[in-house]
Simulated scan of single mutants.
Amino acid sequence: MPAKRSKHLTSAAPTTTHNPGVALRALRRQRGWTLAEIGARTGLPISTLSKIENGKMSLSFDKLTRIAQGLEVDIGELFSSQSPVGNDTFSGRRSITRAGEGYAIRTEHYDHLYPASELLNKRLVPIIAEVHARSLEEFGELIRHTGEEFALVLEGVIELHSELYAPARLEAGDSIYFDSAMGHAYIAAAPGPCRVLAVCSGGESHLRDAMLRQNGAEAARPAAGRGARKPRADDA
Rank of each mutant, 00 (worst) to 15 (best):
164 L>F: 14
82 Q>I: 12
26 A>C: 11
1 M>F: 13
53 E>T: 02
18 H>S: 14
104 A>G: 12
221 R>W: 13
149 E>G: 04
199 V>N: 02
26 A>N: 13
149 E>Q: 04
198 A>M: 04
88 D>Y: 15
55 G>Y: 06
172 A>C: 05
235 D>V: 07
18 H>L: 15
166 A>K: 11
181 A>T: 11
96 I>E: 10
191 P>Q: 00
164 L>P: 05
151 A>R: 07
59 L>M: 11
15 T>E: 11
92 G>L: 00
108 E>T: 15
41 R>T: 15
132 H>M: 12
67 I>A: 09
82 Q>R: 06
196 V>A: 00
40 A>W: 13
101 E>G: 01
53 E>S: 05
101 E>N: 04
176 I>V: 12
54 N>D: 14
3 A>L: 14
71 L>M: 13
74 D>F: 00
171 E>W: 04
175 S>H: 08
227 G>Q: 02
7 K>E: 04
152 L>W: 10
223 A>V: 12
148 E>Y: 01
219 A>W: 09
28 R>L: 13
120 L>D: 02
56 K>W: 00
131 V>W: 05
156 G>N: 03
179 D>A: 06
55 G>P: 01
3 A>R: 04
206 H>M: 07
175 S>T: 02
211 M>Y: 07
200 C>E: 01
3 A>F: 14
125 V>K: 00
150 F>R: 04
73 V>N: 08
22 V>F: 11
62 D>V: 05
28 R>I: 12
232 R>T: 03
160 L>C: 10
64 L>T: 10
172 A>Y: 01
44 L>W: 07
107 T>W: 06
36 A>T: 11
150 F>T: 00
57 M>F: 10
163 E>T: 15
38 I>R: 07
95 S>G: 02
46 I>P: 06
113 L>R: 05
158 I>G: 09
38 I>P: 03
231 P>A: 07
81 S>T: 10
47 S>W: 03
86 G>V: 14
5 R>Y: 07
205 S>E: 11
179 D>R: 02
141 E>Y: 09
123 R>Q: 13
81 S>Q: 06
169 R>H: 08
50 S>T: 04
52 I>P: 00
29 R>D: 06
138 E>M: 08
232 R>A: 10
81 S>E: 10
59 L>D: 05
100 G>C: 04
234 D>C: 14
90 F>D: 08
120 L>Q: 09
107 T>A: 13
178 F>Q: 09
115 P>N: 07
153 V>L: 08
26 A>D: 12
97 T>W: 05
111 D>A: 08
130 E>F: 06
178 F>H: 13
18 H>R: 14
6 S>P: 01
182 M>V: 15
5 R>H: 12
36 A>I: 10
212 L>K: 11
65 T>D: 10
89 T>M: 12
7 K>G: 03
25 R>M: 15
100 G>F: 14
46 I>G: 06
189 A>K: 06
3 A>H: 03
24 L>I: 03
14 P>V: 02
34 T>Q: 03
150 F>E: 01
22 V>N: 02
46 I>N: 05
77 E>T: 05
57 M>P: 07
195 R>H: 08
25 R>G: 08
217 A>G: 07
147 G>L: 00
204 E>Y: 14
37 E>P: 09
